[in-house]
Amino acid sequence: MMYDQSRAQQPPDKQPGSSGRRTPGPEPLIPSDERDKLTQRLQHALNTFADSPREALEDAETAFDEVTAQLMSTLAERRRLLHATWQDQDPGTEPEELRHALRQYREITQRMLRM
């Protein structure tokens, strides 16, 4: 069977044989509770800038560093899990299983490129 590039580029809900049902969207890269805490910290830094600019900048930098660390950790774990799904597969693995892994790589990479 040949690789079907146009089919591989279709969103998962447009694949032949799919029910058309989709989850509300991709899983967030940072959990919502953690995202809320970091957003509050950044907002606090913005609100306190007039009174203490240096402290506000330090707070903003800390929030930035924590977001960066969280993203790196999440992406490394997703890569590890995704790699494990296809790397140890038998060479005779169904192309559909490999296509699913390819779609996941595409989705994550595209999300990062849109940042």
Rank of each mutant, 00 (worst) to 15 (best):
T62E: 14
D65C: 04
E27M: 05
D88T: 02
L81F: 01
E61G: 15
H44V: 03
R79T: 08
E66R: 03
T74M: 01
S73I: 00
H44Q: 13
R79I: 01
L98G: 03
F49H: 13
D36K: 11
K37R: 11
L38V: 01
H100F: 05
A84H: 11
Q70V: 02
L81G: 15
T85M: 06
H100E: 14
P53A: 10
E61T: 09
F64T: 09
R111V: 00
H100M: 12
P53N: 04
E61Q: 15
R79M: 03
R99K: 07
E66G: 01
R80C: 02
Q110R: 06
L75M: 12
E58G: 08
E58Q: 12
E34M: 11
A60Y: 07
F49S: 07
S52M: 06
R54N: 09
N47C: 05
E77S: 06
V67H: 05
T93P: 01
D33Y: 05
D59T: 11
L29A: 06
E94S: 07
D51C: 00
L57K: 13
T23Q: 08
S52Q: 12
F49D: 10
T93V: 10
D36V: 01
D59W: 02
H83K: 10
E66S: 04
L46G: 11
E96F: 02
E55F: 01
L42P: 00
L29P: 06
Q43N: 10
A60S: 12
E97A: 06
R54D: 10
S73M: 06
D51W: 00
E61N: 14
F49A: 08
D90Y: 01
T23M: 10
D36F: 05
A56D: 09
H44M: 06
D51A: 06
P24H: 03
R41L: 06
T109Y: 12
A56L: 06
D88R: 09
M112P: 07
K37P: 00
A76F: 05
D90W: 00
L71Y: 12
T39R: 15
L46S: 14
L42F: 13
P91A: 03
A45N: 12
E58T: 13
E61Y: 09
R35F: 09
R79P: 02
M72K: 15
L29E: 00
P26A: 10
G25Y: 02
T23I: 09
R54W: 07
Q110H: 11
R111C: 01
E27Y: 03
D88W: 00
L38P: 02
Q70T: 14
H83A: 02
E66T: 01
S73K: 09
V67Q: 13
A84T: 07
E66H: 04
L75N: 13
